[in-house]
């Protein structure tokens, strides 16, 4: 089957983008801190933050695409995602990180670190409704 086009680049990672936290506060994307995500998830009725540890980073099926394997949540469930190498993830206590931080900085002007095996990223799951 023909290769699917890479996912489009979202606009909100561009430096200066305005992000609204769960309490209504507005921040620029480059100013977000780990606490902003944690507090927003605490307020949220349907979203829960999970810790997702990077277990493996491989070249994807096409140039510019990476395959990242995470261990998600307390049960360390294995999840693989295919992303553009410039796609930034938020690492606990560190901030925005991608497989190719130079390219992330070039495209989004967003300060970014190198995503590495062992990094713990912020991810979301839906809360179980009781």
């Amino acid at each position: 089957s023909p290769a699917a086009p890479p996912p489009a680049l979202p606009p909100y990672f561009t430096k200066g983008s305005i992000i609204q936290l769960a309490d209504g506060e507005l921040k620029k994307v480059e100013e977000l801190r780990t606490e902003d995500f944690i507090q927003s998830a605490e307020i949220s009725s349907d979203l829960k933050i999970d810790s997702s540890t990077v277990e493996r980073i491989e070249d994807g099926p096409r140039p510019g695409i990476a395959l990242i394997q995470f261990a998600v949540g307390e049960h360390r469930a294995q999840v693989s995602v295919e992303v553009r190498v410039e796609y930034p993830f938020f690492v606990f206590g560190q901030g925005w990180s991608s497989c190719c931080p130079d390219r992330t900085s070039q495209l989004f002007d967003l300060p970014c670190s190198k995503l590495s095996v062992g990094d713990v990223c912020i991810s979301l799951t839906l809360r179980e409704l009781k």
Binding site: Y12, F13, I19, L47, V81, L124, T125, L126
Partner: peptide, 25 residues
Amino acid sequence: NVEPRSVAVFPWHSLVPFLAPSQPD
């Protein structure tokens, strides 16, 4: 004159990936 410009505001959760594992049936 400065023309008013609408600025996009994105919700915080747009920036965080959902990495929920698939649930076994």
